[in-house]
Measured scan of single mutants.
Amino acid sequence: MDSLVVLVLCLSCLLLLSLWRQSSGRGKLPPGPTPLPVIGNILQIGIKDISKSLTNLSKVYGPVFTLYFGLKPIVVLHGYEAVKEALIDLGEEFSGRGIFPLAERANRGFGIVFSNGKKWKEIRRFSLMTLRNFGMGKRSIEDRVQEEARCLVEELRKTKASPCDPTFILGCAPCNVICSIIFHKRFDYKDQQFLNLMEKLNENIKILSSPWIQICNNFSPIIDYFPGTHNKLLKNVAFMKSYILEKVKEHQESMDMNNPQDFIDCFLMKMEKEKHNQPSEFTIESLENTAVDLFGAGTETTSTTLRYALLLLLKHPEVTAKVQEEIERVIGRNRSPCMQDRSHMPYTDAVVHEVQRYIDLLPTSLPHAVTCDIKFRNYLIPKGTTILISLTSVLHDNKEFPNPEMFDPHHFLDEGGNFKKSKYFMPFSAGKRICVGEALAGMELFLFLTSILQNFNLKSLVDPKNLDTTPVVNGFASVPPFYQLCFIPV
Rank of each mutant, 00 (worst) to 15 (best):
D2Y: 14
S3Y: 14
V6R: 10
L9K: 13
L11C: 15
L16G: 13
Q22W: 14
S24T: 14
S24D: 13
G27C: 12
L29A: 04
P30K: 00
P31K: 08
P31S: 07
P33Q: 03
T34G: 06
P37I: 04
P37D: 01
G40A: 02
G40Q: 02
G40K: 04
N41M: 04
I42T: 10
L43T: 12
L43R: 07
I47Y: 15
K48T: 12
D49G: 12
D49I: 03
I50P: 13
S51M: 10
K52A: 11
S53E: 11
L54V: 14
L54P: 03
Y61C: 03
Y68S: 06
F69I: 15
K72Y: 08
P73D: 01
I74C: 08
V76M: 04
L77M: 12
G79Y: 02
V83G: 04
V83L: 10
K84M: 07
K84A: 10
E85T: 08
A86E: 03
D89T: 10
L90A: 15
S95G: 14
G96V: 07
R97L: 01
F100E: 14
F100Y: 13
R105L: 13
R105P: 12
G109L: 03
F110Q: 12
F110R: 11
F110P: 06
G111K: 00
S115C: 09
E122V: 09
R124W: 03
F126S: 06
S127V: 12
S127K: 03
S127C: 14
S127Y: 07
L128N: 09
L131I: 09
R132I: 04
R132W: 06
N133G: 14
N133I: 07
F134L: 14
F134V: 15
M136C: 12
R139W: 09
S140A: 11
I141C: 05
D143G: 08
D143P: 05
Q146S: 09
Q146R: 15
R150N: 10
R150Y: 07
R150T: 08
V153H: 01
V153L: 03
E154L: 06
R157P: 00
K158P: 00
K158A: 10
T159Q: 07
T159L: 12
T159F: 08
A161F: 02
C164F: 08
C164I: 15
D165N: 05
P166R: 01
F168N: 06
F168S: 07
G171I: 02
A173R: 01
I182K: 00
F183Y: 03
F183T: 04
F183Q: 04
F183N: 03
H184L: 06
K185M: 04
R186M: 01
D188R: 04
Y189W: 04
K190G: 11
K190F: 06
K190T: 11
K190R: 12
D191F: 00
D191I: 01
Q192W: 05
F194T: 01
L195Q: 11
N196S: 14
K200I: 08
L201I: 10
E203F: 03
E203R: 05
N204G: 04
N204A: 07
I205S: 05
I207P: 00
L208P: 03
L208C: 09
S209L: 09
I213L: 15
I215G: 05
N218Y: 15
N218S: 15
F219Q: 06
F219E: 04
I222L: 14
F226L: 15
P227T: 12
G228S: 09
L233S: 03
K235N: 11
N236G: 03
V237C: 05
V237T: 13
V237L: 09
S242Q: 14
K247Q: 14
V248N: 03
Q252L: 08
M255S: 11
N258Y: 08
N259G: 10
I264R: 01
L268T: 04
L268N: 04
K270S: 10
M271I: 11
H276E: 12
H276M: 14
H276G: 13
Q278I: 10
Q278T: 13
S280T: 11
E281D: 08
E285M: 05
N289F: 10
T290I: 13
T290H: 04
L294P: 00
F295S: 01
S303V: 04
L306G: 01
L311H: 01
L311D: 00
L311K: 01
K315L: 04
T320I: 06
Q324D: 05
Q324H: 09
E325T: 12
E328V: 14
V330Q: 13
I331Q: 04
R333D: 08
N334I: 12
R335I: 05
D341V: 04
S343H: 14
S343C: 14
P346Y: 04
Y347W: 10
V352A: 06
V355R: 00
Q356C: 10
Y358D: 01
Y358E: 03
I359Y: 07
D360C: 14
D360Y: 04
L361S: 03
L362R: 04
L362I: 15
P363T: 02
T364I: 11
L366R: 00
P367R: 14
H368E: 01
D373P: 08
D373N: 08
D373G: 04
D373S: 05
F376V: 10
N378Q: 10
N378W: 02
L380C: 11
P382V: 03
K383H: 05
G384I: 00
T385I: 04
L388A: 07
I389M: 14
I389S: 06
S390K: 07
S390A: 10
L391Y: 11
V394P: 04
L395Y: 04
D397P: 03
N398S: 13
K399A: 12
P402L: 11
P402H: 11
P404E: 08
P404Q: 08
M406S: 14
D408L: 04
D408R: 03
H410L: 08
H410T: 14
H411S: 02
L413A: 03
E415Y: 07
N418R: 12
K421G: 11
F425C: 10
F425T: 06
P427Y: 02
A430S: 13
G431I: 01
G431R: 02
R433E: 02
I434N: 15
C435V: 00
V436R: 02
G437P: 00
G442D: 15
M443V: 12
L445S: 09
F448C: 02
F448S: 00
L449H: 01
S451Y: 11
Q454L: 04
Q454R: 04
L458P: 03
L458C: 02
S460T: 08
L461G: 06
P464E: 07
N466H: 13
N466L: 15
T469W: 04
T469K: 02
T469R: 02
T469Y: 05
G475N: 05
G475Q: 05
Y483K: 00
L485C: 13
L485H: 00
F487L: 03
P489D: 03
